[in-house]
């Protein structure tokens, strides 16, 4: 399933059918606008990175797509029930085994064949050997794999990941991105948030840059490179790009 990653690869045209459209979404907390008319379109098998500094609105956007919050304005083409969601911190029961966690959520998702679903996920996450281990005893990387697997139980067309690599070491991160790339290759649209610009550039087909709830950029990593004028240090150029736009 896992494979080495290259720099962001263009999507094959046949796959470029939109599976999710977000149009002019606005979210307010009192008088503060957390999102100001944010739009994005994601295609089948596309990896979309939502990037920006802290407080940019990344988590707010993902939580709206996940159905955790309702937008004050705007339109989203899919209901939250059709979207898989993987929170930043693993939402698992540490006292249950990997298989028990998968089985529980498969039952709650009302999967027609629970055992087959669990088997598929164990294979997909490469955790068959750890199926009987309690989740509390797994490494952060393996826990995150189980966390993602649960988001995938209902075989959603779109999977949301909130800062999926935040608490992982470099080796675990690499394995995670290989896993995500494998999912996308199989047709799942993956939308993830991160504040690691270089990681986003390396692993996403499309980047959406948010700052203070406003969408500053939407396009491929190459287009963003061109926009920020990065010659060497992409991260420094990106910070400069934000600064030039008053952020």
């Amino acid at each position: 399933m896992s494979r080495p990653l290259t720099a962001s690869e263009p999507l094959v045209a046949a796959r470029a059918e939109p599976v999710l459209e977000v149009v002019d979404v606005v979210k307010r907390y009192g008088r503060r606008e957390a999102l100001r008319g944010v739009s994005l379109t994601a295609s089948r098998g596309e990896r979309v990175a939502v990037i920006g500094p802290n407080g940019a609105g990344k988590t707010t956007l993902l939580s709206i797509l996940a159905g955790d919050q309702k937008p004050d304005e705007g339109r989203i083409s899919r209901s939250p029930s059709e979207i898989g969601w993987v929170p930043q911190q693993s939402a698992l029961y540490g006292k249950l085994t990997v298989a028990e966690n998968l089985r529980l959520f498969a039952r709650l998702e009302r999967r027609p064949d629970v055992q087959a679903t669990v088997e598929r996920m164990l294979d997909q996450t490469d955790l068959r050997d750890r199926a009987g281990d309690q989740v509390g005893q797994l490494s952060g990387g393996n826990r995150q794999r189980v966390n993602i697997a649960i988001g995938l139980l209902s075989a959603p067309a779109v999977l949301l990941l909130d800062e999926p690599s935040a608490a992982l070491d470099p080796r675990q991160r690499q394995r995670l991105w290989e896993f995500i790339a494998g999912l996308a290759d199989e047709g799942t649209t993956v939308i993830f948030s991160t504040h690691n610009v270089q990681e986003a550039e390396r692993h996403a087909h499309q980047l959406v840059v948010l700052a203070d709830g406003e969408r500053l950029f939407g396009g491929s990593p190459a287009e963003l490179e061109a926009a920020v004028g990065a010659s060497g240090d992409f991260e420094a150029a990106f910070v400069s790009f934000l600064h030039d736009r008053g952020h």
Partner: peptide
């Protein structure tokens, strides 16, 4: 504490 609450109430329970 296990962060499962939000996952559960997203239509599961």
């Amino acid at each position: 504490e296990e962060n499962a609450f939000r996952r559960l109430v997203r239509g599961l329970v």
